[in-house]
Amino acid sequence: MKTPPVQELLTRDEGLATRLRRAREPMLAKELASRAGWQQSKVSKIEAGRQLPTHDDLDLWASLTDTPPDVLELWHAMLTEAQQARRDWARLVRDGQAGVQNEYNRVIAECTDYRFLETTFIPRFFQVPGYTRAVLTESYQRLGGAQDIDEAVAARQASTGLLYDTNRTFQVLITEPVLRWQPKALTPDVMRQQLDRLLNIDGLQNVRFGIIPLDQPVRYFPQNAVELYGDVGFVEEWFTERRLLADEVEQYRGLIEELWQDALTGEQARQLILNVLNRHPH
């Protein structure tokens, strides 16, 4: 979770991105972009909190939307706050992953309904410590940052105990390659431990677990990994994870529910895990 705190700041009900969108309406985004001499995508990204405007952008936005000077002054103050938040978050990532994992834990603790679609890694709640270590090692190699691997592993593992809280429900859908792909830092022994853990978790009453197999047609290709924590959602990208807008959370929730119709569950899912486990090198 590299940028979502900044995006959350921008897109909350009274956030800067939300205020800019309201000031622009009922003018269409493409009309504002045309008048400003921008690509329409720039307006869309600013309003979605995926791109910070500049102070000059705010001046032009205010001019084109007849925004009063006192409101523009507030926009500038909010932009300064968002810029500082982005610097703070970049520093957090640069200085180590433990803080990133603890930030996730705060989001996780605030809800009781979790829905995941995972296309690459074993979901965080199901990971054994050795698997977590390998995944975070790969992240360090790709993104850089301070090497606080022990603290980061401990922080991520802290959330796994929530599986045994029967007041919380987990709906976790993975694709079959998740069972087979593994970071180079992962040893065969740890991967076998990880697959064994999946077999045990499948029996928990508050867990709905399914696997989308490779040898059956699917109604949609599961292109992105998605994590939904109640009404908060994130979609994974190569170098970051983007926080979803409210309507996107609903869209992904519906899409994931449809994909469950193509999933193996219960004994069929268990048999697929056993097949992979039996073929795994010792």
Rank of each mutant, 00 (worst) to 15 (best):
V128F: 07
D88W: 02
E110C: 07
R86N: 12
Q141M: 09
Y114K: 01
V100L: 04
R124C: 11
V107A: 01
Q147N: 14
I122D: 00
G144E: 00
A134K: 02
E138W: 10
Q147W: 15
R142N: 12
R106Y: 02
R133T: 14
C111V: 15
F116G: 01
Y114L: 08
D113H: 13
S139Y: 10
R91T: 15
R87P: 00
L92K: 10
G96N: 06
F126I: 13
T132M: 09
V128Y: 00
A109K: 02
Y114Q: 06
T132E: 01
G99R: 09
Y114F: 15
R91Y: 12
F121I: 12
V100R: 04
V128S: 07
A109P: 02
D113F: 06
E103R: 14
R86Y: 12
A146M: 04
R86Q: 15
G145P: 09
A134E: 08
T120V: 15
V135P: 10
V135T: 05
A85T: 06
T132L: 07
S139P: 04
D88H: 05
L143G: 04
C111H: 11
L136Y: 08
A134W: 03
Q97M: 14
F121Y: 15
P129L: 00
A134T: 09
G145W: 11
G145C: 09
Y140W: 12
L92Y: 00
L136D: 02
G144T: 04
Y114C: 02
V128M: 05
A98W: 06
G130K: 09
I108P: 00
N105T: 11
F121H: 13
V135C: 13
F126A: 13
R86K: 14
Y104R: 06
F121C: 08
A90L: 10
Q147G: 00
V100S: 00
W89P: 01
F126C: 12
Q147R: 06
T120S: 15
P129V: 05
A98S: 10
F126S: 07
R142Y: 13
G96R: 03
L117P: 02
R106W: 00
F125C: 08
D113C: 10
Q147H: 14
N102H: 11
A98L: 02
I122C: 08
G96M: 03
P129T: 06
Y114S: 04
L136C: 09
R142L: 15
P129K: 01
T119L: 04
R86V: 12
R124K: 08
R115T: 13
G99L: 11
N105H: 03
A146R: 02
A98E: 03
Q84S: 07
G144W: 00
D88M: 06
Q147D: 14
Q101Y: 01
R94I: 07
P123A: 10
N102Q: 11
R86H: 10
T137Q: 02
E138M: 14
V135E: 04
L92P: 00
C111F: 12
G130W: 06
R106G: 00
T132C: 15
N105G: 15
F125H: 11
A90D: 13
G96K: 05
R115H: 08
T112R: 13
Q97S: 13
E103D: 09
T112S: 15
D113P: 00
W89F: 10
G144R: 04
R91W: 11
E110P: 03
P129D: 08
R133Y: 03
V93D: 01
A98I: 10
R106V: 11
Q84V: 12
V107P: 00
N102V: 05
T119H: 01
P123M: 03
